[in-house]
Amino acid sequence: MNLKLRIWRQQNSGSNGELVEYRVSDISPEMSFLEMLDTLNEQLNAAGTEPIAFDHDCREGICGMCGVMINGQPHGPQLGTATCQLHMRKFSDGDTIVIEPWRARAFGVIKDLIVDRSPFDTIVEAGGFITVPTGSAPDANLIPVPRDAAESAMDAAACIGCGACVAACPNSAAQLFTAAKVAHLGLLPQGQPERYSRVEAMVDTMEEFFGSCTNHGECEKACPKSISIDFIAQLNRDYLKAKMLNSKLAGQR
């Protein structure tokens, strides 16, 4: 099929960019969205134009590297699917596709479709972990974990850190990303001792970079792992407790 593409080009964080129009022909429906961009880049390279820069690595929807705004939808039209897992059969011949980078003050554009998501790491550095120096762990089966706890912890832990939730949120809030990590660790017995200090540190750091959640629910729909906003409610609950209890004692609650 033949497509008309309008893609955001921007040399570097300093310069200001613009949407540029391109055409690609004979795209097979079997192609993935990124393979379509590969094909375009081959064309550009042949024509002497610098190829379009976009992030990607695993192309299996697990590394969280990829992610662009496709016709106003993060990761494109297919729900619960990362850009690299989106296939061209979801589009039809003659379509116009507009491709933009994530937009949020906290995510500066580095080049073309690539943004800087490092604030996510800063949030995790603030407390998104369980303190357990190597070698100090007890036997793995010493503390049984209720199956359901393990399962919902896994639901939350499935986050791939792609940033689509922020991109989708009208307030550029990172609530879903943060809530997912807080829930993953907070649901497990191993995560209890630091449960409240963790949520406090992570949220306070998050709020230095991102907007606030007003419960639009867009993030859940944009999330390639369909992580539920129920985790955001849990986050709010834990955060209040964290502020209320003296978090020094909180671990014992």
Partner: peptide, 18 residues
């Protein structure tokens, strides 16, 4: 042992064991 303590949500049986 190390990974479980870190919070890696390994699959569990109904009894809560790995």
């Amino acid at each position: 042992d190390q990974c479980v303590a870190q919070g890696v949500p390994f699959a569990r049986e109904y009894g809560g064991l790995l």
